[in-house]
Amino acid sequence: MATSFKGKVAIIQFPGVNCENETADAIRSVGLDADLFRWNEDPGLLEESLAVVLPGGFSYQDRIRAGVVAAKDTVMDALSDLASAGHPLLGICNGAQVLVESGFIPGIHWERVDLALAPNIMEDREGYYCNWVYLRNEGSSCRWTRLFLEEEVIPVPIAHAEGRFVTRDEDLLEQMIKNGQIVLRYCTDRGDIDSAFPVNPNGSMENIAGICNREGNVLAMMPHPERASWLRQVPEDICGIWGKKRFQAAGDFSRMEDEGPGRRFFASLLEKGPVSASSGCSGQAKEGGR
C-alpha cells in the first residue's frame, strides 16, 4: 500500500481480486511504477495517479453477480469523477465487470447500466472457461490500445464464467460502433471474425472482447493482458507471429523473458499526446504503432 500515487499506476485491490500482483509486475515491465490501492483507503490518493487499473479476480467473490457489489463501493465515486475528467482507467476481467456494472462502459449515459457481462454461452459446457484466444484490434482511439496496429491479432488468455457482452438496447450496438467504442473482438488466428465457439469463447455479441468509452480513456476488457506480457507466458502451440517467436525462443532463456503480446496495452500509457474526444474514426491508432 502506498502513501502516494504520484506518477504511479494505481491498482485497486477490492476484497477478493487476485490478479493485482501480476498486473503490477506487467505495468512495471514497461518502465512505469505501480502500486496497490486497498479499496477502503482514502480515494483522494488516486487523484495524483497516472492511471488506474481494476485487476481481475473475484471482487466480493462475484456474489449476486460479478462486479455488482464493487460497483457500489465508495471508491467508485472517486473513479467516476476521475474517469469523466479523462483519467485513464482500465478494467481487466473482473475489473471490466465492475466497469460495466458501474455504467462507465459504454458510458454514453454516464453511470447508466446499458450493458451486461452475462454468463458464457459455449458449446457442450457451462460456467468457467480458461483458454488462450485471439483478439483483433479494431483500430480505435482508445488510450490503452494505441500501440497496436489496426487489425493486429493479439493472442491472450481469458479465464471467466461471465464474459458475454450483451444489451437489450437495440440501438446501443450501432452507437458504440459509430463512436469507435468496440476496441477488441475475438477472432481466429488469422484475424477473421467467426461467431462460433471457441473462436468466440463466450457468445459475446459481435465477438466483443473489449469496449472503451466514447472518449477512449476507459477500457473494459475480458482477456488478461498481464498474463501475456512475457514471451514465456505464450503457449507453444499459439499460431501466428507470436507462436513463431515463442517457438524460436525455446531453449533461450533471455528471449523467453522478452515482451509478450499483451504488454502493449500497458505500454500504450507511455504514448504521449491527448486522446481525441469522441473521434469515432477507426484507424487512427495506426500511427501509434510499432
Binding site: R65, V69, L115, A116, R168
Partner: peptide
Amino acid sequence: TRSRREGVLLNPHY
C-alpha cells in the same frame, strides 16, 4: 440495477 446507484439483484440486460 438501472445505474451504478440503483438496484443490485439483477441486470436487466440479461
